[in-house]
Design a protein around this nucleic acid. Structure first.
Lengths: 225, 225
DNA sequence: GATAATATTGTTCACTTGTCCAAATTTAGT
DNA sequence: ACTAAATTTGGACAAGTGAACAATATTATC
């Protein structure tokens, strides 16, 4: 419960081929991810991937028609792993809905401090700005990540209509993602993440449980002028 | 007040040289920024920058010793512009501290919907993961961006000690940055940004005004088990 | 252990990358 | 107009890029 680790890759077995081929396929993607995480997208050249995986350059072209296809498979494998993990997290038991929401927040924020997550997602966000495939796949991931958040909000605050719940879930999810650049792996506020977790839990619970239907729509703020 | 636009670049005039040289210098950085924003960091090649600015490749090497120096100057110019703008925002008049905090939140979230901001910052975050210079410069920027936030928190909740104020400011700032990938320029939730702004204002004000000293440190949560 | 499918190697190709430099052009002050 | 400094040009260079291919080695199955 305290430690929930998302596997690096979720690879759908290829049809046909030998066992060695499956190994090679996974090995290549694993090496590519290591390069991306340790040296950034600029290091993602076929030759560096080949060297990293102890293979010949030509062999990469056997597994992947093009470099673009390799990268797509890589992103897809990483993203699929997150999607699977999120589905598991949802079904984790918990007492009240509030407690389960707090657990979810903790799990996500702890994952953010992971080297892989801290390094991978900014690359993903940057790529999504210029690659429609990455854009779509990324939004698929976050859509699914918000499903459980959405349900918990519904349990805690049933009066809130569905569309407002969705926006609230987005706000909470986006808030947490924003911590990546500041309290992620080797980031200056990494040591303060436990306190950020407390703030996040407190703030999100308060927000979810006290937001009234329609409050989001009009600009009738509470304390505002 | 409604529209606060951060200039693209803040360039410190070079010493010596003709006026034409200064123009060329700025023109190159402007073209490089356009490429980065419109096509991503992969498009930042000297030849594309040269073409974009109607110059010869060799001329870029006259202005910048190396490609790395060009990119550093570019990032520095963009970041400096933000720093200058933040200093101006701080001194914007406002009634209560709450109202000024709400204004600040609105300004930042509106800037996030800008094409330049939505596209530039994810690139910056990704670069900061592997380039120490970018890492330092980025943290300088955010440190300064949080100064005004910090002061407002102190006004609203004077009982809160300085170190807890800092973490609270970080939480708020990071939360807003996280909206970039979801409600930024051409992002799926762009149209819902006004509602996200309402949620953010309400949530942040509530958080800042009700957080008690020491609450962050211990794990004595409010509604928790 | 022969055989066909699968995997790997080594090499070649055309192209792009950043850097460098000598020559030509433009600029500003005399 | 003359001049020296500043700017710009165009082309060269070695190194690296993704892609392609025939030749070789490995695997699983009979």
């Amino acid at each position: 419960m305290t430690n929930f680790i998302v596997p690096d890759l979720k690879i759908t077995p290829r049809t046909g081929g030998y066992a060695r081929g499956q190994d090679g396929f996974e090995h290549i993607l694993r090496s590519a991810l290591a390069l991306l995480v340790n040296h950034g997208s600029a290091a993602l050249t076929l030759r560096r991937i080949a060297t990293e995986s102890g293979m010949n350059v030509g062999n990469l072209n056997y597994y992947f028609r093009s470099k673009e296809e390799l990268i797509r498979e890589l992103l897809n494998a990483v993203i699929s792993s997150y999607e699977e993990s999120f589905d598991e997290i949802v079904h984790e038991a918990g007492a009240t809905a509030e407690a389960r929401l707090e657990n979810l927040v903790m799990l996500i924020l702890e994952d953010i401090t992971t080297k892989k997550t801290t390094r991978f997602f900014p690359e993903l966000w940057a790529m999504a700005n210029h690659d429609p495939f990455v854009y779509d796949r990324m939004n698929e991931l976050y859509d699914r990540a918000r499903v459980s958040l959405n349900e918990l909000i519904g349990e805690i605050n049933p009066a809130l209509p569905e569309d407002e719940r969705k926006i609230l879930a987005l706000f909470i999810s986006a808030s947490m993602e924003g911590m990546t650049m500041f309290a992620g792996y080797e980031k200056p506020w990494r040591a303060q993440m436990p306190m950020l977790e407390i703030i996040a839990r407190r703030s999100f619970i308060q927000l979810v449980s006290t937001l009234r239907p329609g409050e989001i729509k009009g600009d009738l703020s509470i304390g505002g002028s």
